[in-house]
Computed example of a mutant assay.
Amino acid sequence: MEWGRAMQELSTAIDHLATEDPSEIPRLQLAEQLIELHWQMARLQAQIARRTSVRLPDLQNP
C-alpha cells in the first residue's frame, strides 16, 4: 500500500474514533475496544521504532 494512502486511512480511522462518545458505548464493548486500541497502538509504536532505528548514511564521510 502506498504510504500516503495508508496515512490517510489511519487518519480517517482516528477521526472516526474522535466522533464517537465513549460514554454511550456499552461497558463490555468499550473494554473490547480498549484492548484492541492498545494492540493497534503497540503495532504503530513498533513501526515508529523500526523507522527510528534506521541509520541514515553519514554524508560527510562517504
Rank of each mutant, 00 (worst) to 15 (best):
L17E: 02
R43W: 03
N61V: 11
D21E: 06
L30G: 02
Q60L: 12
D58A: 03
I25D: 00
Q29A: 13
M1E: 11
Q47L: 13
M41H: 11
E24Q: 15
A6L: 10
Q47S: 10
E32V: 01
R27D: 13
A46P: 01
M7S: 08
L28H: 13
Q60S: 15
Q8I: 06
Q29E: 14
I48P: 00
W3Q: 10
P62R: 14
I14K: 14
R51M: 07
P62E: 13
E32M: 08
E24N: 08
S53V: 06
P62T: 09
S23R: 03
W39R: 13
M1N: 12
P62N: 13
R5I: 11
Q8E: 13
Q40I: 02
Q60R: 12
D21V: 03
S23W: 01
L59W: 05
Q40D: 06
A6H: 02
A18G: 09
A18P: 01
E36S: 10
L34V: 03
V54L: 08
R51G: 05
D15I: 04
H38F: 08
Q60C: 06
M1R: 08
Q33D: 07
A31W: 05
S23N: 03
T19C: 03
M41E: 13
L37K: 02
E20Y: 09
E9A: 09
P22K: 02
T19D: 07
P57D: 01
R5L: 10
M1K: 06
E24Y: 04
E9F: 08
L34R: 11
W3V: 15
L17Y: 01
T52G: 04
D58I: 01
R55G: 03
P26N: 04
E36N: 05
V54P: 00
W3A: 11
D15P: 00
H38R: 15
E2V: 04
I35N: 01
A6E: 06
L56F: 07
A18L: 12
S23V: 02
D21P: 00
W3D: 13
L17G: 02
I14T: 11
I35P: 00
W39Q: 10
W39D: 14
R43L: 11
L10Q: 04
W39H: 10
I14R: 15
T52I: 04
E24P: 01
A46M: 06
H16C: 09
